[in-house]
């Protein structure tokens, strides 16, 4: 693991960190010794080819899967330590699934409201409305999931994950089932939404375009390990080895000083 200086400098105010984490099965370790961290409000992206174990890593962070070893730390809490793990439903981590997984029996608004059970009914509805408006679907409250287009379902899934104001949002290949053209537009919008709400997010993808369009920090996964974790600029301009350079080189780097 090689960190450039400014990443190390910010380590003191780590909000979310993964330390020496290994995931996979006893018989076959998918990813070993993964270390990275994110500060509050930043967006990270794990980039790697299909089947490299990045989705398993995301599921381990969400709590759907046991990690083999290592620790996860989020906002002053250990999520898993040897002998003790926090159940997925108590981690306060939101997730956007690859297939969106909207509840088919609930309308768009009710889907967003699902996680707001701690609030009174009017408050929950008002808040769900707010988030549905944030993703630009204020006019689709009553629509059922099957009546929405793929992009609209994606936005509902996003609003549903954001509404309970989780400490971290995970996105598993969030744009992979959308049209290429639409993908870029939506990824820009989602980035702006995260920045506006100071949301900390971690996504995984195999698409370099998506990674560079969305993320502040990018990790490149290859050969069963995290080969580089750095800000987007450094991953692109100073890849640590040839395989990172090969993988990232196919991507396009967006200059976006004006976005922050």
């Amino acid at each position: 693991m090689i960190h450039s200086e400014h990443v190390l400098a910010s380590k003191a105010k780590n909000y979310f960190s993964v330390e020496q984490l290994s995931v996979g099965y006893e018989s076959r370790i998918l990813l070993a010794d993964v270390n990275f961290h994110l500060s509050k409000g930043s967006i990270g992206c794990l980039l790697g080819p299909s089947g490299c174990g990045k989705s398993t890593l995301l599921r381990a962070i969400a709590g759907f899967e046991q990690s083999l070893q290592g620790r996860i730390y989020l906002d002053d809490n250990w999520l898993n330590r040897p002998g003790r793990t926090v159940a997925a439903e108590h981690r306060n981590i939101g997730m956007v699934f690859q297939d969106y997984s909207l509840f088919p029996h609930l309308s768009a608004l009710e889907n967003v409201r699902f996680g707001l059970y701690g609030l009174s009914r009017p408050n929950a509805i008002a808040k769900a409305r707010h988030w549905l408006g944030q993703v630009g679907l204020a006019n689709k409250e009553k629509a059922m999931p099957h009546e929405l287009s793929g992009g609209e379902q994606q936005r509902v899934a996003l609003a549903r994950a954001l509404a309970p104001e989780p400490e971290l949002v995970l996105l598993d290949e969030p744009f992979s089932s959308l049209d290429l053209e639409f993908r870029e537009k939506l990824s820009r919008e989602v980035r702006e939404l995260f920045k506006a709400s100071n949301t900390t997010a971690l996504m995984v993808t195999h698409d370099q375009h998506e990674a560079f369009a969305m993320a502040d920090y990018i990790g490149v996964i290859n050969n069963n390990r995290l080969e580089q974790w750095d800000d987007a600029y450094h991953v692109y301009h100073q890849p640590v080895n040839q395989s990172v350079a090969d993988f990232v080189g196919q991507g396009v780097f967006f200059e976006r000083g004006n976005c922050r």
């Binding site: 759907f64 997925a88 439903e89 981590i93 509840f103 994950a161």
Partner: peptide
């Protein structure tokens, strides 16, 4: 299966998931 996970990630698991997700479906 990911519907179950979606419910869990929103803090709804166990009997609450049965009541709010499985039985309505």
């Amino acid at each position: 299966p990911s519907i179950d996970l979606a419910s869990q990630s929103l803090g709804v698991a166990g009997m609450a998931m049965l009541r709010r997700v499985h039985l309505p479906l």
